[in-house]
Design a protein around this nucleic acid. Structure first.
Lengths: 350, 350
DNA sequence: CGTTGGAATGTGCACGGTCACAATTGCGAC
DNA sequence: GTCGCAATTGTGACCGTGCACATTCCAACG
């Protein structure tokens, strides 16, 4: 169907079906050049108000949407950032990812996530390749396993990257969250209560944050001249916590355990109760993360709260600062975890 | 720096820095046309083996990567699918998302996730817009709230979409996971144990899966002629479970509760224990989802297991079938949840 | 030895935006 | 009335890849 327009131009009212309207379709209907439309879209200052309105009207009528592929092609940038993540089904990573997505969207960026199923190098490689294929402008590494970082650095990646959950040292790659301080808080709490025989159930050693929490534990123990035993290396799961608990109970030379995360703490408590012992009377337990369920564990878990959402937001701020070369105010104030005391800790009975 | 090549062509050894090598750079160095390079990349059948090898060599040398924006532009498809998700920090959604990403990557697709922070319509609109801006080829809706579905349909979206966690009816939009059957399984278990006074703690009513589980509960109760009380409407969180538990205990006219998910079940158990009652002696509890922690709750929770990962995989299979117009074998065999009996259920004491 | 036809390769344009630059318009000052 | 300058708008090329079509190559056949 065609209609006659007063200007004397024959115009097809419905543009050829099957193809989304382009900037030129809009231009034709608005009676301007395609460049003017582009200017309206990009809020160019020198556009007459009346022109702008007219173009905007056509845009709305046609439900025109800029083609991001075309824009990416000509500008040479994809407006996409990549997220490299392991164990993304866990509460911590998942919360951060959600916050990252929100923050990125806010800034007009798209987020593309690639999971690292296992620690296998090939899997890491595949994930990084996937992101690079999309020509992401930056990468967020959520599961900062040492080997992942190494793989990325070895790739001499052309794009900036940021790792979440670091050791508290703020450089241009790492977010300054003081995991060590958090671990010291937890350890100090146990020491203050009078515990002297404290075990530490650590996370996988190739995780930077696991290593940081362990270091915090050892530092605080050392600072208070409390002798330590070697930490037990776990895998973050409640199942492992349970098995570790059963093993530990065969010795039973401790009055408290500091677990590297809440899930393992849950498993630990399960094993301890199975053995007929009481928490916190016989054993005190401290976790890490403060997942939403921790307040309803039995007993409610004393733990260290991390603000994963804030973490995600800062992460994007830092990355975007790297990308655009702008200043980075985000890392200026380090994020300090907070001790949440509930009912799983008490002075030792002996 | 330039070098003289035997063929008599002057070639710049290092292509102009600052720009990634293009298909033409490869072509020039390999002494073929850009189209031949394109054919190698797309595994065109009519390419001489020797030519293919030569081109491949240059590609490796240059570390050439096809520009996905250019490809998307000319082919008119982005090879990207969008995920619309709410509460993506929860175990269920997060697991599915991870599986979706893996499956999509396997199929050569990118995944772009947009979160719906609250139920606000504007938030939904913004999320959908964001995905459409990226010109996704399909959408997976993870948080199947009624209003989200409505919003999407109202948009008369030009792309196919699939919703996760449906009522068991397999149509072209919904994955056939029988939530109703799962809920009946849980309810039946309680009835079989001898319970006759059973409450149901449901999820938010605008969630399709919450509604399906509630329906399953009511159906099974009706089928066994057990009188029912009105379900309590919750918000999926452990905190709500706790408060609901405290309220319910003021009446205490029940011997069992079927909770719509494991988190609320946890809060429920917390409240019940706080009141000095024993689980399962005084009250039996059944959850839904079987999150990894459920096995280590106190007591270990009887629940209904959902295979979220398989769900994610099938979801992509269905969506890709919709996109390519191919056959869909995925939905042929509906996914049936499985009852996992642990220690939170027992025959009623009275 | 010319013809034929399929395999292998090349040519030019299109995709939908943006950029650099050119052209036109508008308006106050001379 | 016209000149100058800034504001506004238009023109054409280009980004990297795939498609349609044209061309070349080469072996088999009559």
């Amino acid at each position: 169907m065609t209609v006659h327009i007063p200007t004397g131009v024959m115009v097809s009212e419905n543009p050829p079906t099957g193809r989304a309207p382009s900037i030129r379709d809009v231009a034709r209907l608005a009676g301007v050049s395609h460049q003017t439309v582009s200017r309206v879209l990009n809020a160019h200052p020198s556009i007459r108000e009346s022109t702008k309105l007219r173009v905007q009207q056509v845009i709305d009528d046609l439900q025109y949407r800029p083609n991001s592929a075309a824009r990416a092609l000509v500008k040479g940038q994809s407006r996409t950032i990549g997220v490299l993540s392991a164990m993304s089904a866990e509460y911590g990573p998942a919360s951060s990812i959600a916050a990252i997505q929100d923050a990125a969207r806010e800034a007009g960026y798209f987020v593309n996530t690639a999971n690292i199923s296992r620690g296998e190098p090939s899997s890491i490689q595949a994930a990084v390749d996937h992101l690079m294929d999309q020509s992401v402008e930056g990468i967020v590494v959520i599961a900062p396993q040492v080997r992942v970082i190494e793989a990325i650095e070895k790739l001499s990646i052309a794009v900036p990257y940021v790792t979440l959950q670091s050791t508290g040292v703020a450089d241009k790659h790492a977010l300054s969250v003081d995991q060590i301080a958090g671990a010291r808080l937890a350890t100090r709490h146990l020491i203050d209560l009078g515990h002297r025989n404290i075990y530490h159930l650590a996370g996988p050693q190739d995780w930077i944050e696991a290593e940081a929490r362990m270091r915090g534990f050892l530092e605080e123990m050392g600072a208070n001249d409390v002798p330590t035993t070697a930490p037990i290396l776990g895998d973050w799961t409640a199942g492992f916590g349970y098995h570790a608990g059963r093993e530990l109970l065969r010795v039973r030379d401790f009055t408290a355990i500091f677990s590297s995360n809440d899930q393992m703490a849950l498993g630990l408590m399960h094993a301890i109760r199975d053995a007929g012992l009481d928490i916190p009377r016989d054993v005190s337990i401290v976790g890490f993360d403060d997942i939403p369920e921790a307040a309803h564990f039995w007993p409610p878990l004393t733990t260290v709260r991390q603000d994963f959402a804030e973490l995600g937001r800062r992460c994007i701020a830092l990355l975007l600062a790297n990308i655009t070369g702008g200043a980075n105010e985000a890392s200026s104030s380090p994020l300090i975890p907070e001790l949440v005391v509930r009912s799983s800790t008490a002075p030792p009975a002996w």
